[in-house]
Computed example of a mutant assay.
Amino acid sequence: MQVQILGHEREIDELRIDADPVTIREQVREYEAGTRDEFDLEITYPDDFTGAVMRAMTDIPVGETRTYGEIASALDSAPIAVGQACGRNPIPVIVPCHRIVGVDSLVGYGGGLDLKRQLLEHEGAPIPDER
C-alpha cells in the first residue's frame, strides 16, 4: 500500500502489519503531524538477517541515529550487509531505516536522501553531511 509522508509517497507491505490500512495511514498522519512519536502497530518481522536489522532499527529512539557500522557491530556483521538489509525493509518509516546513517555522511535511503533528511529533521535527529 502507498502512504503519504512529508510530501512523498512510500510503499509499505501492509501484510507485515497486523492492522487495517485505515489505522496504518492514521498513525502515519499522526506521526507527520507530530502527535505520535512511535507507531503502535504489531509487526511481523522476516526470520532472516533483514528481520534482525529491522528489529535493531525499531530500538533506535526517536531523535537519534545509529551508523551502519554500529548496527553491524551489534549484529556481528558488516556495514554493507546492514545497508543492504535496510534497502529490503518492507515497511519504511514505520520501521525507521531512515535513522541509520553513514559514519560521517547521509547516505542510502530507498525513498531518496531528501526524504531521509526530512524524516530526521522532523524527529530532531542529528544529520551528517551528504556526500
Rank of each mutant, 00 (worst) to 15 (best):
I43Q: 01
P46Q: 13
C86W: 00
Y45N: 04
P79D: 07
A125L: 11
I94C: 01
Y68S: 05
T65Q: 01
D48W: 11
V3R: 00
E32W: 07
E32Q: 15
G111P: 05
L119W: 03
A19S: 13
A74Q: 12
D20N: 12
M54Y: 04
D47A: 13
T50S: 15
E32I: 14
L75A: 06
T67M: 03
V28G: 07
A56S: 08
Q27R: 07
P128K: 06
L106N: 06
D104H: 09
Y31R: 07
P61H: 07
E121K: 14
R88F: 03
R99A: 03
S105D: 09
N89W: 03
D13H: 10
Q118K: 15
D48C: 10
K116W: 04
D104Q: 10
G124C: 12
D18Q: 09
N89Q: 07
L106H: 08
L75F: 10
I127T: 06
A78C: 03
R117E: 13
D104L: 04
A125P: 03
Q84E: 11
V28M: 08
E32A: 14
A78F: 12
N89S: 04
D48E: 11
Y31I: 09
V107M: 11
E130C: 12
R66M: 14
D13A: 15
E14M: 13
G110S: 12
Y68G: 01
V28F: 03
S73N: 13
T50F: 08
N89L: 07
D104N: 14
P128H: 08
H122Y: 09
L120C: 08
V103C: 02
F49G: 04
D47V: 05
A125H: 05
I12F: 03
M1S: 13
A33V: 09
V93N: 01
G34L: 08
Y68W: 06
L113V: 10
I17K: 00
G34S: 08
T65K: 01
R25I: 13
G108N: 13
A52S: 15
R36F: 04
E38A: 12
T35M: 04
Q118P: 06
V28N: 06
Q27G: 10
I80Y: 06
H98K: 08
G112K: 07
I94D: 00
T58V: 14
G63V: 04
A19M: 06
P21W: 09
L75Q: 02
E70C: 12
N89P: 04
D13M: 11
Y45D: 02
I17Q: 00
E42Q: 14
V107Y: 02
S73A: 14
L6S: 05
I100V: 15
G102F: 04
A125W: 07
G51F: 11
G111A: 13
E123T: 12
G112M: 09
G111S: 12
L15A: 14
E70F: 10
R10P: 00
R16V: 06
D76E: 15
T67N: 02
E42V: 14
D37T: 15
G102N: 05
M57P: 02
I5P: 00
V53T: 03
A81G: 02
V103L: 05
V107G: 01
P46T: 12
V93T: 11
A33T: 08
V95N: 00
A19L: 07
L75G: 05
A33H: 08
Y31D: 01
L15H: 14
A56G: 04
V22L: 11
R10G: 03
